[in-house]
Design a protein around this nucleic acid. Sequence first.
DNA 1: TTCTCAATGTGCAAAGTTGCGCAATGGGAA
DNA 2: TTCCCATTGCGCAACTTTGCACATTGAGAA
Lengths: 198, 198
Amino acid sequence: MTTAAEPGLRERKKAATRQSLHAAAMRLAIEHGPERVTVEAIADEAGVSRRTFSNYFGSKEEALLYGDYQRIHLLIEQVRARPAGEPTWVALTAAAEQFYLKLGDLDPQWVAQSRLVRAQPGLVGAQVQTFAALERDLSAEIAARTGADPASVRVKMTSAVFLASLRVALHIWLDKPPGTNLWELVSETLAEAGRGFA
Amino acid sequence: MTTAAEPGLRERKKAATRQSLHAAAMRLAIEHGPERVTVEAIADEAGVSRRTFSNYFGSKEEALLYGDYQRIHLLIEQVRARPAGEPTWVALTAAAEQFYLKLGDLDPQWVAQSRLVRAQPGLVGAQVQTFAALERDLSAEIAARTGADPASVRVKMTSAVFLASLRVALHIWLDKPPGTNLWELVSETLAEAGRGFA
DNA sequence: TTCTCAATGTGCAAAGTTGCGCAATGGGAA
DNA sequence: TTCCCATTGCGCAACTTTGCACATTGAGAA
């Protein structure tokens, strides 16, 4: 048994279906506008039933934001690659930096998605929930790094504030003219949180 | 024209209907359990149509959490009463303290509601959204106090982190045995955020 | 290889959400 | 006071979400 075992056919199929539904949702949203996309159309596009769509995503918004979810989740996993002795906030900031710099290089259509997200008012609510849902995972990661209790005040606050920083930076970035550097804003919000508010 | 003019019959009726719907939702949720409450039952209990319910609240969860919304909104307004020269974070912490201490005195059934909230998993998502929705109002209040731009990084981060502190404290509190002092936890999360994470 | 079980996909029905249009009414202008 | 209209309540229809029951199919045991 290896540490990163083959996911198995079942899991791979499941992941493929989820990805397919997400891609279909994005395609249709870009083509017809996010508000004119129905669940039925997404399901048809992905070749599954409406019911199956609901088995994977609780709403259209969730399907659209699954890309964001995956990206942030990837960032959280990158935290694991940081040196063990590194202080938590430094590790988080460094992971965010390498993540957003890499993102700045090749994002042909990601900007399009993000702008599309802002256009649809209903998505901001789902956006907030997406970030909040990741707090649990990040807390687990931080707890594993530091040996602290995942339910402790310190760990939970660090997760919440780190993700809130990313979220706020993203929102401000969306209000700025295209071409604005996202990492600069993220860096600024993280620095603000790092230095405290007292 | 006075600063706090009479709201007018129309507005008062509207507020009464909203309050009535919230109360009805709470009553039924406590009686039959939060998951067995239908929108129709709430509307009937409040004496309005199902459609009207949806005019006031986007979901059952929103109706249930309207009490939380009002309370936090009240806290935000209390910030206005703090001395003008007081630094933002001090004002926020002080407002929170007087708010939660006063709350600790007489909360016969509020604890019941909060525990009820935790029981229903679907409510945590709405809870997060409720807090996020208040970020705009708090940002406006802080901007008014300090003369800063409500859309600035500093103001937005202060709002987001302050409300995240309240939210995290509340979640931890809900996992603790009954009788635990809420203000102590809030105080701890606020202190953590105040001192920063760097 | 074959058998068994749990996970997955689906249809159906009940409940929830939202845009549209119409009727009633409070607030303010004339 | 009388009139106008923006706000509010509501019915209706389309769409979304969710619990339930059943068929199908990987994964692992025998």
